[in-house]
Design a protein around this nucleic acid. Structure first.
Lengths: 186, 186
DNA sequence: TAGCGTGGAGAACGCCCGTTTCCCGCGTAC
DNA sequence: GTACGCGGGAAACGGGCGTTCTCCACGCTA
């Protein structure tokens, strides 16, 4: 059973899972929906991930890697340390404008399952901690006071939530403006 | 059937629904859990709200009124216009510290059901719009530039989300400090 | 006291969904 | 050509849940 096109099947499975879970939420998506989306027999789905929870974890872990890589790539296109911080919010705006944007997968997942699934709570905390650490690094590299980092995190999280609920990218430019104000020396 | 202690029953029902829905999410809570929590026969539950969705709406509407009233009461204890804005974040901190705090009921509900329930999406937007309008009012009363209002909204939303995920009240003081910086003239 | 209706408790129904199992067809080996 | 085994599709199973229905105990009326 193992050596077929297992890796290709895994990719298609995660692609289908990501599209469906992100668009509709986790509980709203049945394993049958995913099987249909991936074009895989249910038997193979369960051979790759023995339970739905494992598939959810794999989806969030892959998305975490990709999301942070895309953010880092956008930031790395900029040199000046303070501009790099603002680039975070520019990239958020680009993300908000993507078709199908529905807010942050971890905030949504935490709201849906955080109190009922320790795994979901852990993944959400890990992702947000990594994002917070990344922002702290940018702040340190710019020689700014350390307490600006958490403040930028709040702006970014607020922008994600607000953009998701209202379906507009305006929060990105509002957050960017607020961030620029916070970067000015006291 | 109508004139018994219908209003008392309705209150107990909404109390139980609020406690359970907020703590565990909406789909994780069964009508039987609510019936047990309220100590009401299922027949009476369905007499008061013909479907779960109606009960969810009633829960969110009552919570909306109460949440905004509590916020307004905390703000109204302060006179100076800029201090009133900061009082918002002080009150958020007090809220975060309450036992059982699990983030914002509308953010969580939107993440869980926003894409699958138009009613949930509408309620979340209405609540957040009302909060945004309230902040805009405080900003106008303080004679500040209008674009500070949405920035404060992002800080507050980000604080709710981050406090919910990490289970700490630190975001309230971080958001308060950021807000204070934004209130300083450019 | 006999009859009636009202309200409470929980069983029952139908549906959905995560997971497992069955069966059939095809390719391979001898 | 035939037996074997593997993989695919889908049906089956078990549990949970929203909603409805049944049954019984109690209180009022003549």
């Amino acid at each position: 059973m193992p050596p077929f096109d297992t890796e290709a099947a895994r990719t298609r499975l995660l692609d289908a899972a990501e599209e469906l879970f992100y668009a509709r939420g986790i509980r709203s998506v049945g394993m049958d929906d995913i099987r249909t989306g991936a074009g895989l027999p249910l038997k193979r789905v369960y051979a790759l991930y023995p339970a739905k929870e494992n598939l959810v974890e794999a989806y969030l872990e892959r998305r975490d890697v990709r999301w942070r890589a895309r953010l880092a790539a956008a930031v790395d296109a900029v040199d000046e340390p303070r501009e790099r911080i603002l680039a975070v919010f520019d990239w958020l705006g680009a993300w908000f404008r993507e078709p199908g944007f529905r807010g942050c997968a971890w905030i949504n997942g935490f709201g849906e399952l955080g109190s009922v699934s320790p795994a979901m709570a852990r993944l959400a905390r890990a992702h947000k901690q990594a994002f917070a650490d990344y922002l702290d690094g940018l702040v340190a590299a710019a020689g700014l006071r350390a307490d600006v980092g958490p403040q930028l995190l709040l702006l970014a999280e607020g922008a994600m939530v607000t953009a998701g609920i209202f379906g507009t990218d305006a929060p990105a430019v509002q957050a960017r403006a607020a961030a620029a104000a916070l970067l000015r020396p006291a």
